[in-house]
């Protein structure tokens, strides 16, 4: 399994590379932003490890370049800071997981295997309806003007359901199936609350209420 390791600390990179090779990965090492960007785009890796603090730039920029160039292998980022904002921006840039330094090699390998497994059979897929595009892998709603909105699990599932069949009326019961077991007996109000929140994102007229029947997604608005 080919792995790209981007880490500027020589000692750590060497140690890590030998441990990973032992675990069955074939490791290429890059030390700079330039090197990493090139390798990531030219070679076909199965998984990547990316350190955020590189000598000639930020690791997140490398990740963004990979993602815009359709290099979609799963990436685990290594960070020394580990505050929540850092994690959010790392995953927003396209990472799949993060690990704070220092870490145990066993944990790193377990996480790598997990993201590889998760990415298997994953294809770049998105649902488009009207002005909106729903990124299925990253649970993101992309607007016409390029802004992105993060969605929670249920919001994403409801929107995917509505957007996959525009102009089809979905009853509350059908939509209720998209909910996980939030409550033992979820009430209709919950669907209304979620629809209300989705309307804030996509606009009031985009999701129309059919009285007594349900809701539909109008992609012409």
């Amino acid at each position: 399994m080919r792995l790209l390791l981007v880490e500027d600390d020589r000692l750590l990179a060497e140690g890590l590379a030998s441990q990973l090779e032992k675990a069955g990965f074939s490791v290429d090492t890059a030390r700079t932003v330039r090197e990493a960007t090139l390798l990531g785009q030219q070679e076909d890796y199965r998984v990547g490890i990316l350190d955020l603090g590189l000598p000639d730039g930020n690791g997140l920029d490398v990740l963004r370049k990979w993602r815009t160039n359709k290099a979609s292998f799963p990436v685990l980022i290594l960070t020394a800071r580990g505050d929540w904002q850092d994690k959010v921006s790392g995953l927003k840039a396209g990472a799949d997981d993060y690990l704070a330094k220092p870490f145990q090699t066993e944990e790193l390998i377990a996480r790598l295997n997990a993201i590889v497994r998760r990415s298997e059979g994953r294809v770049q897929s998105s649902v488009k309806a009207g002005r909106f595009e729903l990124d299925e892998n990253r649970q993101y709603l992309k607007m016409e003007d390029g802004t992105e909105h993060s969605l929670t699990g249920t919001e994403f599932r409801l929107l995917r359901c509505l957007m996959s069949h525009p102009h089809h009326v979905f009853s509350k019961e059908q939509l209720m199936e998209q909910l996980y077991n939030l409550n033992e007996n979820p009430s209709d109000n919950i669907i209304e609350a979620y629809i209300g929140r989705l309307r804030k994102l996509v606009g009031v007229n985009t999701i129309t209420t059919r009285r007594g029947q349900g809701y539909l997604f109008d992609d012409t608005v």
């Binding site: 929540w84 994690k87 959010v88 995953l91 799949d96 997981d97 649970q139 993060s150 929670t152 249920t154």
Partner: peptide, 20 residues
Amino acid sequence: ARELLWLLGRLYPEKSFELS
């Protein structure tokens, strides 16, 4: 909260993180 819910939804893809 939305950002963090989204983040954890990505880290635990088999679980549902909801906001009310």
